[in-house]
Structure formats: structure tokens, C-alpha cells
Amino acid sequence: MIKQDLKSLEEKSIYVIREAKIKFPKIAALWSMGKDSTAMLALARKAFLGKVPFPVIHIDNGIDFPETYQFREDLTKKWNLDLIVAKSKIKPELSGFACCGANKTVELKKVMKQYGFDALIVSIRRDEHGIRAKERYFSPRNEKFKWNYKDQPAELWDDYSSKLDDKGHVRIHPLLDFNEIDIWNLTQKNKIPVNPLYFSRNGYRYRSLGCTHCTIPLKSKVTNLNGIIKELSTTKIEERAGREQDKERAYVMEKLRALGYM
């Protein structure tokens, strides 16, 4: 995995976050307490002189790890975050694709409507998944949250899209250019707090965090950031290998994203 020049990555992200906040006053960010969305919040603080200038949303299905909830409480206090918890209910009869669609996407739709948000910062990266590589920095979604990936608007230079109409919203992806290793490099250099699940316990650690039902830890003895960065520079295993939803069907991610999943 390529460790990129951090300075240029940061410049791009800070520009995009500022552009998002200035263009869309009714904006919020998704925060899963994972490494990516936490790194994004750290960059937002850099962009806005120490303050995260928008609410952060946690779609809480009640089955996240205890460590994740604790991390949420601690950082909310420390960074003075405007946290919105949107509770969703797990339906035991659903799993994988249907579960992610029913839980996270439906709840997200509700909360965006309730608060009137018309833009949403999502901390996805191109290297996570082939489909995510196709995203733009600013990506309009229609009223039903659909991503029309076959007909995306042009996005060139620093000219970013607006909303399609009054009913849709825009997804903003400030971390698109980061690789997994770059997130950790940023985290280390800036001393960004880390969810402890990423470090090894009993020979296993999490590389990508979903909820307790669909996330499987990988074999690893790494207990610090140096170790993670070293591990990633040689690994041959895909980051989302422990995420069930990706493997279920070849094009499941494409479908999830088209339907409004993050």
C-alpha cells in the first residue's frame, strides 16, 4: 500500500471541507467513531481553527462495540462535538446487504429529513472498494438518496457540484484521495485519538469497523500506531476482508451505494 505525501492530501481535504461548509450551511457529517471519520473531524478542526463547525451523526443500531460507545462519549466531550445519535433497530431476520440497507440507510434518511440537512460529509476513500473509486468529491443524490453513477455531473478543477434540486442532497467526500495507511499516518502525526478496537487483543485486531454482527477481526499482534503503519506497508490482505457485506455478492456494494448507503 502506498504511503502518500501527507501535506498535499491534507491541503485537498481542508479545501473540500471548507468548500462544503461555506456552500451548504445546513451540513452534517457522519461519524462512526472509526479511524476515517475521526480523522476527517480532526481535519475539520484544522480547517476551522480548532472547532468542528457542523453536527456529527452516529447511526446507532445498538450493536456497536462497547469500546466504540465509550470512544464516542470521550471524544464528544474533548472536542466539544454537536453529536446527533440516530437510533435504528436491528431486525433479526435480516442480514448482510438487507441489514445495512434497512438499518443504516433508512435511519439516515429519517435524520436528514428531521434536521433539514442538505449536505452530508462521508469519510469514504477510493482505495476501499472499486465502487468508491468512482465517486466525486461532491456527489449529488436525489430525493430518494439514489446515486446516479452512470450520469454523474462533471467535476473539474475546484468547481464542485450543487444540489440537483431542492429535494436532494449532496454527499461530500473529503478523504477520497487518502489510502488506509495515510489515515494512520495522519492519525499518528496529529495525535488523533484512536478507537482501541484497532489494536490487537488476544492476537486479533480490527482493520475496518462495522457493527458487532458483520465485522470480523484479523490476525495481528500490533498494539500501536507504528505497528499498524508497518503492517499495512507489507500486507496483501484487503482492508475490508473482515466486512461481510462486501463479499455477499460481487456487485453488492454498487447496489448499496446506489440506494444511498455510505
Binding site: 502506498i2 477510493r126 482505495d127 472499486g130 465502487i131 473509486a133 468512482k134 452512470k150 454523474q152 454498487e254
Partner: peptide, 23 residues
């Protein structure tokens, strides 16, 4: 390795841009 939309593979064409890295 690059074309990742199902349509891209089935129709053997690139629909939208993608990015891949090399050292």
C-alpha cells in the same frame, strides 16, 4: 482490475473515471 461497475465489465468499457496507484 479497474473497471468495477458491473456494466463496465459486462460491456467491456469504462463508464466513469477511476484511480489506481503504482510505485
Amino acid at each position: 482490475i479497474l473497471d468495477s461497475f458491473s456494466e463496465e465489465r459486462e460491456q467491456e468499457m469504462t463508464i466513469d473515471t477511476t484511480r489506481a496507484e503504482m510505485v
